[in-house]
Structures are given as C-alpha cells and as structure tokens.
C-alpha cells in the first residue's frame, strides 16, 4: 500500500510543473468566472440576486442573435476548413515524393498569428483591396463600390475566409498524419474491383481520414465560436460575435455589468463541453464498428 502511495506521490510531484499551472490558471480561472457570474468576488459589491446576470442575458434578444451568429460563423468556417484541409491533404498525399516535399509550403499559415491572417483577408478582399484592384485593372469593375461587399455583408464571410485560411493547414496536418500510414493497396484493390475515383475517395479513403476530420472540426469549431482576434478585425456589429459582446461588456461598460460578461463566458464554456460530448457520442454511434479497428 505504501509502495502504491509512494508511486502515486512521485507521479503527482513529477507532473506538478504541468498540474499546478493547469489548476491555478485554468481551473482557477473557470472558478473565478463562474463566481463572478453569480456576483461573487466582483470588483464592485453585487447588490442583486445570484442569477441576475443570467436572467438579464437570457431575456436579451441581442444575446441570442449573437449566439446564433457565432454558431453559424464557427460551424461554416470549421466545415469549410475541414473540407478544404481534407481535400488538399489527399491531393498532397497523392503527389510524387519530390513535389510532396515542395508542398510543405502549405504549412506557412500555421506560423502566422490569427490577427495577421485577418489582415491578409482584409488586404485582399476589402473594396480597396488587392482583389478589387485586380478586378479594376481587368476592367471587371469600374469603381470600388462595384466590388461586392464580401467582408461586411452581414454573413460573416470575412471571418469565415480568415478562419478557413488559417485553419486549413492545421486540418491538413492532422489528416496527413493519418494518410501517411494509409495502405495504398486499399486504393489499388478498390480500383481493381472497378470503383471510380469518387467512390474510392468516399468509401475507402474518407472513413480512414474521419477521426482526424472530427478532431479538427471540434477544435476549429470551438476556436471559431469563442475567438476574439479575427472578429475584432473582420467582425460586424449587428449581430456581433459573442466574444466581441463579452469584450464590450467587460471593458466598455460599467464595472457593475461584469457578472453579465462572466455569465456569457460561463455559458460559452459549458456549451463547448456539451458540444464535445454530444459530437463525440454521435460520431461514436455513427462509426460503430470502425472504432473496433
């Protein structure tokens, strides 16, 4: 028994450099956020009831439109990123060895900060941007106003573009990690049996890539749902992204509204947890059998 205790003690002390920051920063941060959402440990003494902030948010239509908009932008951008990443990873995987090495260029957006990617999108797609200039030079548009309002159309397209550009190499990285261990003879066998390229992709290759696709979708969706930097540069105000809503409540309003900001953050956190559980369960049910590999 003492041997077991000693071993567990050694393990905990060995992991302490990782566990301590996790406990203090992450768990502590979550706890403080939850507490402040109930009006506890707030900068100003909270006069109302514990659930006042939640009541106020949940009766505010602006919150729901922001929530829906954030959900939509995150969903579309995660899906586009995953689809683009998967398709490109499959193409890169099929390249001859020499070209595949050159294709490592795809990793460049990985090292760029999100804010830089937001500015890249802005520089290219704004009405005074590079694409508009090229269109003007080619005579496709006459004035800036003729260029479609892609970035601020009310659909969050600018953010979707930025998330897709930034996230695609990440999705490719995950998918390629699986593909390098994929047995090419499965494709040869399917082709010998008469399958077309499309059938081979959807029946043979896609199931193999699915775990990486699901992982990248979850990560990209949750990032897109809660991130601040890209919406700060490319976001719109009506409706705005939830992260911007929280930022405004936290920094631009009365300190008395701090519990509302924290209540939104708390709800976003629990939404993320529920989303991960629900998604994983769904995937597990759909892939029953494949998981037995």
């Amino acid at each position: 028994m003492s041997w077991t205790n000693n071993r567990a003690g050694r393990l905990v002390s060995g992991l302490a450099p990782l566990l301590l920051p996790y406990l203090v920063l992450f768990c502590g941060g979550i706890m403080l956020t939850i507490c402040q959402s109930f009006g506890v440990f707030t900068p100003l003494p909270h006069a109302g009831a514990a659930l006042d902030a939640y009541a106020k948010i949940l009766t505010d239509p602006a919150f729901f439109s922001s929530f829906g908009f954030s959900l939509g932008v995150a969903m579309v951008s995660a899906f586009c990123t995953m689809a683009a990443g998967t398709f490109l990873a499959y193409q890169v995987w099929q390249l001859p060895a020499k070209l595949a090495t050159a294709a490592l260029i795809y990793k460049i957006p990985l090292i760029l900060p999100h804010i830089s990617v937001a500015f890249v999108v802005l520089v290219f797609w704004s009405p005074s941007g590079i694409v508009a200039s090229i269109a003007h030079s080619l005579g496709i548009i006459q004035t800036m106003q003729d260029f479609p309002n892609i970035l601020y159309s009310g659909w969050g397209l600018g953010m979707v573009l930025a998330y897709t550009l930034k996230g695609t190499p990440f999705a490719m990285l995950l998918v390629l990690a699986l593909l390098v261990r994929f047995d090419v003879r499965q494709i040869q066998t399917a082709a010998m049996l008469g399958a077309s390229g499309v059938r081979i992709f959807f029946s043979i290759v896609l199931p193999r890539m699915a775990p990486a696709m699901h992982t990248s979708f979850i990560i990209l969706f949750l990032y897109g749902f809660g991130a601040f930097d890209i919406p700060f540069v490319l976001g719109e105000s009506r409706p705005g992204m939830l992260s911007i809503h929280v930022y405004n409540l936290y920094f631009k309003h009365d300190l008395a509204r701090r519990p509302e900001a924290m209540a939104i953050l708390t709800m976003m956190f629990f939404f993320a947890v529920i989303f991960i559980i629900a998604y994983s369960k769904t995937v597990q049910r759909l892939e029953n059998g494949v998981r037995k590999l």
Binding site: D183, R185, Q186, Q188, T189, A190, M192, L193, G194, A195, S196, R199, S203, I204, P207, R208, E287, G289, V290, L293
Partner: peptide, 25 residues
C-alpha cells in the same frame, strides 16, 4: 484482381459490404 498477402480488406466495411463492393462499384 490481386489478393494481397495480408488480404487488404476494407476495415470500415462489414464482411458483407467487402464482398459486395465490386458489384456496388
């Protein structure tokens, strides 16, 4: 058609689907 040494069955398909793959194609 070549049957490889380690058979190269499609892992995400049942036996039935493996056998019927060529006909579906």
């Amino acid at each position: 058609i070549i049957v490889f040494q380690d058979y190269v069955l499609f892992p995400s398909m049942t036996v039935k689907d493996n056998v019927g793959f060529g006909l579906k194609a």
